[in-house]
Structure formats: C-alpha cells, structure tokens
Amino acid sequence: MKSTLIKFPSPSSAEAIIAVSGLSRQFGTKKALNEVSIFVPRGSVLGFVGENGAGKTTLIKHLLGSLKAMTGSVRVFGLDPVLDPVGVLSRVGYLSERRDLPGWMRVGEFIRYTQAFYPGWDERYASQLLDQFQLDPVQKIKTLSQGQQAKTGLLAALAYRPELLILDEPSSGLDPVVRRDILEAIIRTVADEGRTVLFSSHLLDEVERVADHVVMLHQGRVVLNGRTEEVRAGHISALLAFAQPPGASPVLLGAHAVTGFGSEWRVLFGGSRTDLVTAAALIGARVVEERTPTLDEILVARAGGKGS
C-alpha cells in the first residue's frame, strides 16, 4: 500500500502552522478581536472571510508580529511572532491589500532588493514567475497597472518558497485575469510540498474553490470555523410556506436570515434537515424547497440582517 502518489498531507493529521487561542484586541472602546481561536494545520488552505472591519487584517497583523497580543496567544510555526520576528517572517510570504511597493524602483531592482533579505530565494522560480506574470524587469513600479503591481508583490512573496503564504485580500480591485493568476499561484503553492496558505477575501467564490477550511469573522468574533464543505452542509436555504400568512417577519429558531412576503418566506437555517422541519412546524410552516447555500449566502446571513 505504499504505492500511492498522494503527497498532500491530510490537514487533520498535521501539525499546527498557525495556532491562535483566546486572542482579544481592543482599539479604544472598539473590540477589534474578541476571543479569537484558530488553528491552521500544515498543508491546508484557510479562507478568511468577513465583511470589512470584521477584524481580518487585525488578526493577520498579529500573525506577522506587527501587533502584540493583549490577551490570548499567537503562535506561528510554534513561535511567538512578536518575540521572534525573524524566525517567523523569514518563513512567511506576505502580500497585503495595499501592496506598498517602492514606486521609484524598477521591477528587476525590486526583485534583487527583496532577494537580498531571503537566503532561500529561488532564482529560477523567480524568473519563471516573471515570465509567467508577463512582467518587464526594467519597468518602474509606479508605472505598473494595479494588476501588475499585485503580481510583482506576489512574485516577491512566492520566490523564496515560504512555508506559509499569507495573502490579505489579494484579489481586491483586480480584474478577473489577474485574479485567476493569483488563484493559480495559491494552488501551485499548496501543490508544492504541501505548503500552507491563509488568505482573506470577500470573493467567496474563490474561497469556496480553494480553501479547505473557512473562518468567518463578524465584529471581531469567530462565527464559523470548519471545513468548507461542512460549513456549507451545516446550513440550509429553505423556502417556507405558511398556511396562514404571518403578520410580520416570522421568527424561526436557528434561522440567520428571513426574507419574504405574505405566505412564503426564505430562511437561511443553521442546523440539520430534521431540526429545520421541526422548527418550521412549530410556527405553522412547511418546507417547500431546500438547497445547500453558497458561502456567500451564509456570510450575508451571518453578518447581520441587512442583505448587501
């Protein structure tokens, strides 16, 4: 039975690359992170979702050691990123949403400059990426398009083959072609020797394709945390029909969002099918349609009543 080609470790059996427990952070009176605990095993891809201001970037800053944990603990590769920034950052590739590249440098200069910081820099891989991303080494960074800048930043984050790749909204503001390149880079990173990726995004379609784990933040708290397919399977989008139209929006135990009018209401329900049928019967409704919702629908429902 030693014949299998599979080299991707099963994420459940692997060691923790990121372990955050009970992390809270306050900015003034605002709780940016509230008792956040996450665990990212080696070789997995964690999709980090939530509306703007949910705390995603704040958590990423803790992982990079640029914010110190007020309460709780943060470990990356088993190390404290604040106490051992070199030990952590030399093994992390990071691309922020605001790409912060030195505009006055040429692409080639920037690559050589970045290379100097990382002994593990893979020159062949870097030139392969340069080629693939169709970047011109003599072009000044400030003259690059948004998409080209993102690719330049991504090249710099990938070329030393980091064990952990952290991407903060890598696709934000980019066209579909560049988004595709970024997505493929993530896929290749995982396919190569089972490296670990954490990426935040509000493009839930991407998260759904690529992430094996999803963590959803809402107002600084983790509201969902699990395998992508289990998170989806744990919810039902159902259409309820009432024999008697309820006067106001019906209240259903376990429902995260209720929309509708008259005698038909759509609910996003967290729980099993049996629970749903029981809960519906209690308020005089029956389930006339049901399907597994997308992550997008779950996020909108979980992130508060207003649809967006």
């Binding site: 991707f8 896929i187 992430a211």
Partner: peptide, 9 residues
C-alpha cells in the same frame, strides 16, 4: 487542480 482552479487537496 490548476485547470479547475480548486485546491489540490
């Protein structure tokens, strides 16, 4: 995985 743009895992 690259063709379908999904996680190799």
């Amino acid at each position: 995985a690259e063709q379908l743009r999904i996680n190799p895992n």
